[in-house]
């Protein structure tokens, strides 16, 4: 009887220690300190979903006929920053995108330079954490292409998107994803929506499309892309504006 019990207990013990090992690995991989059980659950989701997406599968694309003509918005729809409004009035002629950090050749690109690069158009479903979702046709430059151009240095782990819109608390919006998500074939910096330039409420002139993750990760009004090995030096160090002030989960695949 003892033997029979032991075999079952052994199997259970092995499964349990495997799970515990997995959780420990996920916690070690998490970019910020684990403060509580919520962060631990976030780390577990991050680790598991990375396994799920390890082959970089593509998100489903939709028929162009289904796009939302007036694309819905969330968050800041018109930055109150004077600097932004001046650039908007000037059609972003003096706007540039900076790509810097742990890269071999930092770059600064104008909107026309970005438009002249290989572009990608995708009709995808945008989902907001509030609960709504809408289909849009997005055109832009694949992020992996830009990262290849600047040459990511060994040791780099994350990409931070610095935005131009000041939030209610006086801080600028920012978001971050890991290099793996940044390299997904459908992760693009988009300058076009439904065949037109991205309108102001949707993040003119350039916004992130990170199709494997939820709405607040899709930083709008982007002007600087920073390749880095840590998230600690921006804001409160949790990797995004919502993460800093609202305890939003950093891994936003769900």
């Amino acid at each position: 009887m003892a033997n029979k019990l032991n075999r079952r207990q052994l199997l259970h013990g092995m499964l349990l220690s495997g799970a515990a090992g997995g959780v420990a690995m996920a916690a070690a991989k998490y970019p910020s300190p684990i403060r509580n059980i919520y962060d631990l659950a976030d780390a577990i989701n991050y680790g598991l979903h990375d396994l799920l997406l390890s082959g970089q599968p593509l998100v489903r694309e939709y028929d162009r006929a289904n796009v939302a003509q007036i694309f819905p918005t969330s968050g800041v729809t018109s930055p109150r920053d004077e600097r932004y409004q001046r650039m908007l009035a000037n059609n972003f002629e003096d706007w540039t995108l900076k790509i810097e950090g742990l890269v071999d050749n930092p770059m600064e690109l104008s909107l026309s330079e970005l438009r002249a690069m290989n572009s990608q158009t995708q009709v995808t479903l945008h989902t907001c954490d509030e609960g709504w979702s809408a289909i849009g046709e997005w055109t832009g430059v694949p992020l992996w292409q830009l990262l290849q151009l600047v040459g990511v240095q060994p040791g780099a782990k994350y990409v931070i998107f610095h935005c131009m819109d000041t939030q209610g608390d006086g801080n600028l919006y920012y978001e971050s994803i890991d290099l793996f998500a940044a390299s997904h074939p459908q992760t693009i910096l988009a300058y076009g929506l439904n065949g037109n330039p991205v309108p102001e409420p949707n993040g003119a002139p350039l916004r992130l499309r990170i199709e494997t993750q939820i709405g607040y990760k899709h930083a709008k009004f982007v002007e600087r892309v920073e390749v880095t090995d840590t998230l600690a030096h921006v804001g409160a160090g949790r990797g995004g504006w919502w993460e800093d002030i609202d305890n939003a989960v950093w891994y936003a695949g769900l």
Partner: peptide
């Protein structure tokens, strides 16, 4: 799980089972 972007990227069949997000 069908409301999760990454899960439906890995298993788009969830969209077909439930009729969409």
């Amino acid at each position: 799980l069908t409301m999760s972007n990454s899960v439906t990227t890995a298993w788009p069949i969830l969209f077909d089972i439930f009729g969409g997000r």
